[in-house]
Write a protein that binds this DNA or RNA. Sequence first.
DNA 1: CATGTTACGAACTAGATAGTTAATTAATGT
DNA 2: ACATTAATTAACTATCTAGTTCGTAACATG
Lengths: 226, 226
Amino acid sequence: MTSQPAAAERQRDADRTKAEILEVARREFARRGYAGARVDEIADLMRTTKRMIYYYFGSKEQLYIAVLEQAYTEVREAERLVDVEHLAPVEAIRTLAELTFDHHDAHREFIKLVAIENIHQAEHIRKSEVLANLGTPVLDLIGRILRAGTASGDFVTEADAIDVHMMISSFCFFRVANQHTFGALFGRDMAAQEHRDRLRRMVGEMVVAYLRGAGSPDHPPDQGSR
Amino acid sequence: MTSQPAAAERQRDADRTKAEILEVARREFARRGYAGARVDEIADLMRTTKRMIYYYFGSKEQLYIAVLEQAYTEVREAERLVDVEHLAPVEAIRTLAELTFDHHDAHREFIKLVAIENIHQAEHIRKSEVLANLGTPVLDLIGRILRAGTASGDFVTEADAIDVHMMISSFCFFRVANQHTFGALFGRDMAAQEHRDRLRRMVGEMVVAYLRGAGSPDHPPDQGSR
DNA sequence: CATGTTACGAACTAGATAGTTAATTAATGT
DNA sequence: ACATTAATTAACTATCTAGTTCGTAACATG
């Protein structure tokens, strides 16, 4: 079909045009939300015309879904590179938490898209078949770490993989997604460099502490001195 | 000005109309986002006409800001009722976490508005003078609990009040705000009753565990057996 | 009860916005 | 060289949407 091995200087290049539309559209959707983004605006930010958007994607909604699909798959591929299996349970989960942190830090546009998609009750994600079972790999990993940690005695709290994933994600997500209202209300920019490292350590310590079971009433700390 | 002590059956009632507009507008903005909400739609959902929206609020944006102001202040007033001061540090912070959880659980429309506002980089909140220093009371409370806990030896981790607040909020916020994408990806509805109680306990234990310092590398658990 | 003011409704408008039509030019295969 | 298909452009349209105009009826006040 359209498969010349990248003859870089062609005047007409379906793949390139398509990619450029996706890129600009992603930026615009992330900036303004689904309803707030303008098809005309997206077109004006490229050398292509609006017609091409409809030529390749059919409608604003389908374009938006394509953007979501691309963003999600990109992000999951990045996650796959992580190897924490060789680490001891405590270090494994701490590292995973910190990597998740980095990940959220590095893909802010993606975070915004997720937030936007939640406002729309994930109706577009549900329309996409590509994005159905994209969550499982992380859960498998966490599951293995949890079992290893319980077996070694490092983890005391009986935890569910999904819950732990949620705990880590929530912290990382919130810091990026809610930086603006949080900043406006509490006068602190969580996303700023000066807080980054401390908060990064914090996620790791949080999960580890939780799994070690220091939170439950029947496991008081060892050096208690009341 | 317009101050009859609620003569319930008046045909014209500025306060009532204004209140109704705000109520419907809040629902619509929370549902569809700022750009997605339609002034006409808001009008059609009431017995009042669109004209009244402009009569009382001037513009779509000012209406939206009014909605935000109302939602935020309502929510902060609810928070003020909480009394955890008489509790011991560990129970105080755990209770605060669980109350924050309940609070998020009970005000989902508000959560959505916050999420929406973050997509717009909090530009509307910043335009409002009402919403400037609304965050402080919670921070004071957490600060006191932290100091008490450190003094009593219950808390080992040196933590900042804002960080702790963020940690609690992120968990509670995420569960509600991201329920849809999370559900779509991991097949679990975090907001459902069946997970509610477990996750509620989880926030409490998480904060307590973190503050007890079980997460840092130099504080291994007491019954360690590797 | 006359008069001014406040609250309200119906219909209108200018500009924006998603989506289209139809003609045109570049690449490709034969 | 030529016909076919894929990629692209420019101009157009129907509809939607925030915001307005203007008239009117209820209420308060002297």
